[in-house]
Design a protein around this nucleic acid. Structure first.
Lengths: 256, 256
DNA sequence: GGTATCCATTCTGTATACAGCGCCTGAAAA
DNA sequence: TTTTCAGGCGCTGTATACAGAATGGATACC
């Protein structure tokens, strides 16, 4: 969901060929069918996607801006690869920007009514976390609600400039707020992390309501670091590693 | 300089038609010949730029990602307009990201040798600031050196993920580190600001060398706020306002 | 006089054709 | 056996043609 945020406005009506190509290519890349370093030639993609070169090319340009592809100096595009550090840093960037959003919301103040939707979301999350502790597989619901929470938080900042940058930062699949939820489920301390994450959610809203900017910012940064912790676990656990969205793009230490 | 950072890699050899179109369009927009809200039709641009529709279209897509254009729901693109808040927030975003870069550099540590280039740059800036106090018009040199300093600072963080986001944030002309230098020159307290800015430069390097992450981050944030101050001045001073890069894109309070 | 409707113009999205460049392969010579 | 050169293939960048849709203006009706 959060992955396609940047394209959402385009796909509302009838998905144009360009958007179709963009989504299809993204799936091919994230699914690992196109491996990091692979050059993506347009003509083969024409056959594979069933659209002409023009939309394919447009999609490639967009995916480059999105960060999944890199331009080859002699022309064309190749699938990018990411180091472990790249992923850690991307998470840190998202944390910094979400922290900024939370701080701005807190410092500038939010009308009480505007907090209602996110408080609803928080309550729903509470319920899901409860279910989860009861053993039910509530993760799909959690992912959805978590994504919504982060979106609503952005709304509170009411800042297009900040929102834009956060969205850009979260386009990379493993930098999205929900990227490591699946990994998290595999953790021995899964319940703890879930509880802590939800407490972050609660506290950041309290901080915003109380206009505590520094606190709001610190919480969101720490919140992002939960993802880093999950990442660290996933790097040491083969099964968990495969649960990272876009795992195919990551090169583990030692390989080029 | 910093403005074309994202396109630099493409323009190295012989500027392709697409790059040519992108640069030309950017100039038209920033120069105010294409006004905010204006739809940019492709065919007129074909005549105006002397290239065919394909490169024009590619350039439009890139300029949208860059933030200068917005997609029209029914198709095509229009020149974006920015509120005062948008500009403040864009500056704040850059500050947050440059702060992150500085903090990471400090926390992770930088080999002593890697500090040499930026210390050189700092010394050159010292000289220019000195000249400027002596009355010489040193602003072109200052702009160049200032841009270089900020680039070198990014290098210290040695983080592609962070660098990428900072560059993206700085694509908007008024969010670039050097955006308000010209405005600054018009300030009554121009010398003071210049002195303070240069002290920021010096202190952030010291902080990085001393691995004081929090301090390094705080300095870069405050450094960005100098731009906010300049902006505030420019909003109250017609002559200074025109010195903002991309001033044509800004809508002053009250107008749509 | 205002409003709704219809038509013509104009534009975008898409497909395709063409030229030039680069790269890779294969063969020949040292 | 290795290196170099030549040839061919594939690829990108660019231009252009075509179809469907939207927009704006003019006209007719209320």
């Amino acid at each position: 969901m959060a992955l396609s945020a940047s394209a959402d406005r385009d796909e509302e009506r009838s998905p144009s060929q360009t958007v179709r190509a963009q989504l299809a290519l993204r799936d091919l890349i994230l699914g690992g069918e196109l491996r990091p370093g692979d050059r993506i030639s347009e003509l083969p993609m024409v056959d594979r996607l069933g659209v002409s070169r023009t939309p394919v090319r447009l999609a490639l340009v967009r995916l480059e801006e999105e960060g999944l592809l890199e331009a080859i100096p002699s022309g064309g595009f190749a699938v990018r690869s990411f180091s472990e550090r790249d992923v850690f840093d991307a998470i840190e960037v998202r944390g910094a920007l979400e922290g900024l959003a939370a701080r701005l919301a807190a410092e500038r103040g939010v009308p009480a009514d505007d907090l209602l939707p996110i408080r609803d979301c928080l309550a729903e999350l509470d319920a899901v976390v409860e279910q989860s502790h009861a053993g039910t597989d509530a993760f799909p619901a959690y992912v959805e609600l978590n994504a919504r929470f982060h979106r609503l938080l952005l709304d509170l900042a009411d800042s297009p400039s900040v929102a834009r940058q956060v969205e850009r930062a979260a386009t990379l699949p493993f930098a999205s707020p929900s990227a490591f939820v699946k990994v998290q489920a595999e953790l021995p301390e899964a319940r703890t992390v879930l509880t802590v994450a939800q407490d972050h959610h609660r506290c950041v809203i309290d901080a915003i309501e109380g206009r505590e900017g520094t606190r709001a910012e610190a919480i969101m940064r720490e919140h992002a670091r939960l993802a880093s912790r999950n990442l660290r676990f996933a790097l040491r656990n083969k099964a968990a590693f495969e649960l990272i969205p876009g795992a195919a793009l990551l090169r583990r230490r030692g390989r080029t």
